[in-house]
């Protein structure tokens, strides 16, 4: 009954607030924007300083200084020449940076489809021919040091994909495919969140990108591939309940007859860091809480409450899901 408990990384390490992720980039695409942020910040402070100094002189300065400031010349200098110089420089910088960030990814880069859904993320790893190799949800594994191209789509309303430590955000718009490049320089978990208001529990639509050393990454993917090929039926109560309680209508577990596509894929749910689209730590207890009454945790989400199930059933379901690795 009592399996050893694995302590997974807690949410804090994923959704860190300080230092601000925008200024604490973990890859080159976020990195150049971080540099830009500092430049802009410096520009803003200097210009604000100039304005405040001018205002100070205008209000409290000596008569001589004041009379110098009190003419049209200062408008031409401060209000026209200064902005034109500063803005021209910024425009050139901004446009070149936009171009560099917009160059297409190297051919053969790994591609992943990420689809925003109300209120979670469908993930599909594509093979080199563009076919789906593996399904997953709410979590994306990438190799360190490689550019990964994300094909961003939406299944319902507009969402926006944002993992600030890896890249700026890009919208997921019904009827369109937007391409985003991400690249991590060091292993770790990077949190993200939907950034376009998508109704209901938009606030609780998180995401995790996990970067591994390339070798480790390939091992994980290979293990997963191997796992789907031959998933022996567990024969446990959990598996029976998964069928009888109707879970399979929405959820898929590869290598089993459970094939629902409306909700997140659960093939590897046991390995995930988070539950409920990046909002809860994933452990047996939270799994039980989520299965039993997800509405109490993330009001408005699409998973109905299973309060009718006896607690024993919920526990067995949780145990079954915990084994899906």
């Amino acid at each position: 009954m009592s399996r050893p408990i694995s302590t997974r990384s807690s949410l804090e390490s994923v959704f860190k607030g300080w230092p601000p992720p925008v200024l604490d980039p973990a890859g080159p695409y976020a990195g150049s924007i971080s540099v830009l942020s500092w430049v802009l910040f410096a520009m803003a402070v200097v210009v604000l300083g100039v304005v405040l100094a001018a205002l100070g002189v205008a209000l409290f300065g000596g008569q001589r200084l004041k009379s110098r400031l009190g003419g049209q010349a200062v408008i031409w200098l401060g209000g026209i020449a200064l902005p034109i110089v500063v803005l021209t420089a910024l425009l050139v910088y901004g446009l070149s940076l936009t171009r560099n960030l917009g160059t297409p990814a190297p051919p053969g880069a790994m591609r992943v489809q990420v689809t925003g859904e109300m209120w979670w993320w469908r993930v599909a790893y594509l093979d080199s021919s563009g076919k789906v190799a593996l399904w997953d949800a709410n979590e994306l594994h990438i190799p360190v040091g490689e550019t990964v191209v994300l094909e961003l789509r939406s299944a319902d309303v507009i969402h926006s994909f944002w993992v600030p430590r890896l890249s700026g955000k890009l919208d997921m718009i019904p009827g369109r495919v937007n391409l985003m490049k991400i690249k991590a320089d060091k292993p770790g978990s990077y949190g993200g969140q939907c950034a376009e208001y998508c109704g209901g529990p938009h606030a609780l639509m998180g995401f995790v990108v996990v970067a591994h050393e390339p070798a480790e990454f390939r091992r994980i993917m290979a293990d997963r591939q191997a796992a789907l090929a031959s998933k022996p039926p567990s024969g446990g109560r959990g598996e029976q309940l998964f069928a009888s309680a109707g879970c399979a209508a929405c959820h898929r577990i590869a290598g089993t007859p459970f094939n629902g596509m409306a909700g997140p894929d659960l093939t590897h749910v046991g390995t995930r860091r988070t539950l409920g689209a990046g909002i809860l730590p994933n452990n047996r207890g939270t799994l039980m809480g989520w299965i039993g009454n997800a509405q109490a945790i993330k009001p408005g989400n699409r998973m109905p409450p299973y309060s009718v199930l006896p607690a024993d059933d919920i526990r067995d379901l949780a145990l079954y899901l915990e084994q899906q690795r």
């Binding site: 021209t88 446009l95 936009t98 171009r99």
Partner: peptide, 14 residues
């Protein structure tokens, strides 16, 4: 003149 000049930058740089 200045605004159109700026507006021409993207054609060069974007």
């Amino acid at each position: 003149l200045v605004a159109v000049f700026w507006q021409g930058f993207p054609a060069l740089l974007a």
